[in-house]
């Protein structure tokens, strides 16, 4: 039986209340949203917060809407809600494809978008998808709210720009109606973490790629992105040769570890193949959206 260490339980009634509880209890306090990352870590005593601040009552952080020409996703949005959102499906089908392979339906009922991002597991799917889409992250603290660009949000495995007395409140993705996007993931069994995953987003202008985003998960890519692959794409036509070269660059532009999911060369090959598949589908979608 896995028993977490003892802690004091607090329940936040608002964002400001949660922030004041974080300040009062200091760095040994942790926010808990869906809990599907934190509770398993507490059971293994890899995490031993002295105080848990439950933010599940903050339903005002559960929304998906368009504002200022951006798709805005509240941090307490459950995975199941992101998966079911017609707005998300219309603008960024990649996010729906990523959600379909995150854990299982029951876990998605409870797990939250913000919780997944703040856990910042190196194999997390949405981090790669949001990286490819150029998302930014709104972080609330005592001094107000600040918007952190994607590159600056993920600082490394299990580490984000969110300080101990702050909380993530929203994810923002610029709306680009002509952008095509796709997500490809290989998992060993349904609901497992990725062996590798690739997210591709492409926007075409006059037959050439005007904007490209490549996100990679589970292969230790800096900030979950492949800038080399992106640079190869932009300014070139979305033909097979360009996509294949970019995909090949993505396979080199990461640092996978050998583990029980496979050796390094296999994972690099996998990254290239998944990136190519995602690129081909994203380009086809972009063509339809012009």
């Amino acid at each position: 039986m896995q028993v977490p260490a003892s802690f004091d339980y607090e329940r936040a009634a608002s964002v400001d209340h949660a922030l004041s509880l974080l300040r009062r209890h200091g760095p040994e306090a942790r926010l808990i949203a869906g809990g599907h990352s934190l509770i398993p870590m507490m059971k293994l005593r890899l995490a031993q917060p002295e105080v848990l601040i439950d933010i599940n009552d903050l339903s005002d952080l559960s929304y998906i809407r368009i504002a200022d020409n951006r798709l805005c996703i509240g941090a307490m949005t459950r995975h199941a809600d992101l998966l079911a959102s017609p707005l998300v499906a219309e603008h960024y089908p990649m996010l729906v494809e990523a959600e379909e392979v995150i854990a299982d339906p029951i876990v998605r009922n409870r797990g939250s978008v913000g919780g997944s991002l703040c856990q910042a597991d190196p194999s997390e799917d949405l981090s790669a998808a949001f990286a490819a889409l150029g998302a930014s992250f709104v972080v609330a603290g005592e001094a107000g709210r600040r918007e952190v660009q994607g590159e600056d949000f993920h600082l490394g495995p299990y580490t984000t720009a969110v300080e101990a007395d702050e909380m993530l409140v929203e994810v923002r993705i610029p709306l680009r109606p002509s952008m095509g996007s796709a997500y490809e993931k290989l998992e060993r069994r349904a609901g497992d973490w990725a062996v590798a995953a690739a997210a591709a987003a492409i926007r075409l202008e006059d037959g050439v790629i005007a904007e490209a985003g490549i996100g990679l998960s589970a292969v230790n890519a800096a900030h979950f992105r492949s800038p080399q692959a992106e640079r190869r794409l932009v300014g070139n036509p979305a033909d097979q040769a360009t996509l294949a070269e970019a995909a090949s660059l993505a396979g080199a532009d990461c640092n996978p570890s050998a583990d029980q999911r496979g050796p390094v060369d296999y994972k690099r090959h996998l990254v290239s193949e998944l990136t190519l598949r995602a690129l081909v589908r994203a380009a086809a979608s972009a063509n339809r959206r012009i």
């Binding site: 339980y9 809990g35 409870r110």
Partner: peptide, 14 residues
């Protein structure tokens, strides 16, 4: 809504 009760603290169901 179906949830996995091994990964929720009883306090959260208050």
């Amino acid at each position: 809504t179906p949830v996995k009760s091994c990964t929720i603290f009883a306090a959260m169901a208050d």
